[in-house]
Design a protein around this nucleic acid. Structure first.
Lengths: 346, 346
DNA sequence: CGCTATTATGAAAGCGCTTTCAGCAACCAC
DNA sequence: GTGGTTGCTGAAAGCGCTTTCATAATAGCG
């Protein structure tokens, strides 16, 4: 093994190199690059040529330092790689791309033993604003940033009730009501498992309470043993159902807080020989791209995830532009009936 | 509409503020923060207190400028939101997270009319190195960066043949051979549609040639009318098959270059009343998380996408550490037999 | 006890840019 | 011709950090 000598990249040309080559001052170069002041035809051409020749590209950090902006927005995710993030990211990207900002993505499996600014590798020190996904930031850090007026918008949760941070989320209630109602009134299911999301997930809790209310409204029983905990992953769903099965708890339907879990639920059910939807009906939430192609096609509540990302990013950008957008954005969801609930293909 | 007044965030404390409060020089503050030189117990404590009190966080841009590093690696994607990216991103994130680097993600729908450094919003000017996904960067830009010794590793393609840029990809051939062989020898399929990926996609082309070779080796006919073009999206697959169907081209199997397309193929086939696998067998490539749950479960070539991301990121990090890793990494793939090929569940 | 190592600290010079400010022509009207 | 514009340009002061380099204070040693 060789000693790890530090690689020495060829030195990048700087604005001074350009200035020298063009025979002007660096101020002038800056001016033509940014078009911040009139420059004579002749000089402009010389500068442009020099830039071309040296293949010059301004050093972002230096520029950021001088203008006191990073031109970067951060996207903080609790973990990355969930299928849910694909459309979300697409939405965010679309919004950010058409602005002058860039996107720093970070999945924050925090390492609390680190120095504070290493603990949150994207934050006030390297972005102009942040998109914060539920569960990716400690409440304390959130408050601190907010106190500093640091622009943020929250994804799928509202911040601590003491403050008023802009956020975007789904209108969980209506979609959920429809889904449960469908299960209860159309398919006569009474023993519906509710598969929660991760602890502390706002959406999940909201959905749960809507779930209970709907059950109540319809006169269906609320059975505590039918509440299971997943974590918005296929594996989580699989394990939760396996456990229910192992405890021989009787149920005729499962409502999962997300489609990802639904695939796990399907796997567990299938392995146990339970037919979907005959033995147990299944309804998900999100309508991920693959949901329509599951076996059977998944009945689910469609959540406009990409739109949420787009909307959140735009909200952040508008804050950065000095505007004050609506604090809350709730995107409508809609029940998509396929076959896992017991409906048959028309 | 109000005039867009620029938001005035509260001024962040700087290292000077800390120094003043602690009654030391900024050099000393820097030293305790970075642990670059011994500092007396007493002073260190005073500095730490001051940092705590002011809630100080070093400004990344300034630091980057001073140390001439950005501590950021870029991930350039051709477009974002593909399900393929979820595991990829997870792998990259995992590798990057355990280093001192951060991750800048950019989906490069390039806007060629922009200034050059705005055209590539992540590049030499704001990262120390880049992970380049196939199709996300012009060859010309790639060469230029490489000429400057800019650390890069390519994902799923090798660069221009004139240079030798590190890359990681899949061992497409073996997986594909197995798949085709399975289709031909086990299921007696002879008229296999090959659904290509996007134009210029190296993996796709490699798979195509392996496809032809295998066919030849097995003595099966190579039928030009059975080559269709998709774009690694569900919609692309759907359209391609619809078109084949419309032209009444006869086929008894479809091999898609990716699972995403496979879902589209399924949709098109189903709509046309063709049964899978009875009428047409279907084999994909990638084995995305949902593939096992499709209807029918998809037989596919499993590609270790997450591992590819992890491996590529690590390769880049090792370059940044001054080492010189293997240029090429080919990850093995493996045929996963489920039911869309015609096999029955055991 | 004088003289050299050693250690902790501060001053100051950058890093590569932007931006203010002042200067210098050339121009205009009177 | 003056005085005042106007238009272009360069010098220089930052932006908030790191990192020499110098210096003062302390320790080590014969």
């Amino acid at each position: 093994m060789t000693t790890t000598t530090v690689r020495k990249p060829k030195p990048r040309p700087t604005i001074s190199d350009v200035a020298r080559l063009a025979g002007v001052s660096i101020s002038t170069v800056s001016r033509v690059l940014n078009d911040t002041a009139p420059v004579s035809e002749d000089v402009e051409q010389r500068v442009r040529n020099a830039v071309e020749m040296l293949n010059f590209t301004p050093h972002a950090a230096a520029r950021n330092l001088a203008v006191r902006k990073t031109y970067t927005v951060g996207l903080l995710l609790p973990e990355v790689g969930n299928n849910f993030f694909a459309p979300l990211l697409r939405g965010v990207e679309n919004a950010v791309r058409s602005s002058e900002y860039q996107l720093l993505v970070h999945a924050s499996l925090r390492t609390p033993d680190d120095a504070p600014w290493r603990r949150t590798p994207v934050g006030e020190h390297n972005t102009d604003g942040m998109l914060v996904f539920v569960g990716s930031v400690e409440e304390e850090d959130l408050l601190r940033a907010h106190q500093r007026d640091f622009p943020m918008v929250l994804l799928f949760f509202r911040g601590p009730s003491s403050v008023n941070i802009p956020w975007v989320g789904f209108d969980n209630r209506t979609g959920l009501c429809q889904a449960v109602e469908h299960l209860v009134t159309v398919h006569q299911r009474r023993r519906i498992v509710y598969l929660r999301g991760p602890v502390g997930n706002a959406d999940s809790e909201e959905r749960e309470s809507a779930f209970c209310e709907t059950l109540e409204r319809l006169g269906a029983p609320i059975l505590p043993e039918l509440f299971a905990r997943g974590n918005y992953s296929a594996q989580g769903g699989e394990i939760a159902i396996q456990e229910l099965l192992a405890r021989s708890i009787d149920f005729d339907a499962v409502f999962t807080g997300d489609d990802e879990s639904a695939t796990g639920v399907m796997a567990a059910l299938r392995r146990a020989g339970r037919r979907i939807p005959e033995d147990v009906a299944l309804v998900g939430f999100d309508d991920l791209p693959f949901s329509a192609h599951l076996n059977p096609p998944l009945t689910t509540v469609r959540a406009p995830i990409e739109r949420a990302g787009f909307s959140a990013a735009n909200k952040l950008l508008s804050i950065l532009a000095g505007e004050t957008p609506e604090v809350a954005t709730r995107l409508p969801v809609e029940l998509v009936i396929r076959q896992s609930c017991g409906c048959v293909r028309q």
